[in-house]
């Protein structure tokens, strides 16, 4: 079924290396759309056998209507936190789709990605500045939501906080904020 943002249907792929929190990011996005906003979602993921390192991707389908096919073939939005992921998946993005990259890792954008809206988010550096590199995924989510408005800011914040370990709520709020601001800049 054709992706149809006018009909409120989105296919997203969050990709990078194992250990970057992409699984969690996909989960949060799915909860924001599905639990907080009450839309239909399907979230899937794949990763290598390594506990860290190795390729990782987390896909989320969001729709107002029943979701039939469960896999993302042509994402509207692609987040890449590694060069390998960008090289591999950029060509799958729909014409006119959005590519969000972390320039710390992604230096080369494949030619097939020309025509996509490319957004650079210094997620890892900003997370490091905030004191915890591990929240890079939340910074990236903030940026992604600011650019695409795939879910509301209230929803993404509620979903992030629901998953944040006790005592890290403030850090996570600031990470989201850093993500929103990274786009405006």
């Amino acid at each position: 079924m054709a992706s149809d943002n006018a009909n409120n249907r989105w296919e997203l792929r969050l990709s990078g290396t194992g250990g970057q929190g992409l699984m969690l990011a996909g989960l949060i996005l799915a909860e924001a759309a599905g639990v907080v906003e009450g839309r239909k979602v399907v979230q899937t993921q794949s990763y290598g056998p390594e506990s860290t390192g190795g390729a990782a991707k987390s896909d989320v389908i969001i729709s107002a209507d029943e979701i039939l096919h469960t896999q993302v073939a042509r994402p509207d939005i692609l987040l890449c936190l590694s060069q390998e992921a960008c090289t591999k998946y950029a060509k799958d993005v729909r014409p006119g789709g959005t590519l969000v990259i972390d320039p710390l890792f992604v230096r080369d954008i494949p030619t097939e990605a020309h025509g996509l809206k490319v957004v650079e988010v210094d997620a890892t550096r900003k997370a490091t500045e905030l004191g915890r590199r591990v929240v890079a995924n939340v910074v990236a989510l903030g940026a992604l939501v600011a650019v695409t408005r795939v879910v509301s800011r209230q929803a993404i914040e509620a979903a992030v906080l629901a998953r944040a370990p006790k005592g890290t709520e403030d850090l996570n709020r600031r990470a989201l904020q850093a993500g929103y601001e990274a786009i405006q800049g």
């Binding site: 799915a30 639990v35 979602v41 399907v42 899937t44 469960t70």
Partner: peptide
């Protein structure tokens, strides 16, 4: 494995 490892609300 697909249904077992996917998430839905």
């Amino acid at each position: 494995a697909e249904v077992g490892h996917m998430r839905e609300v």
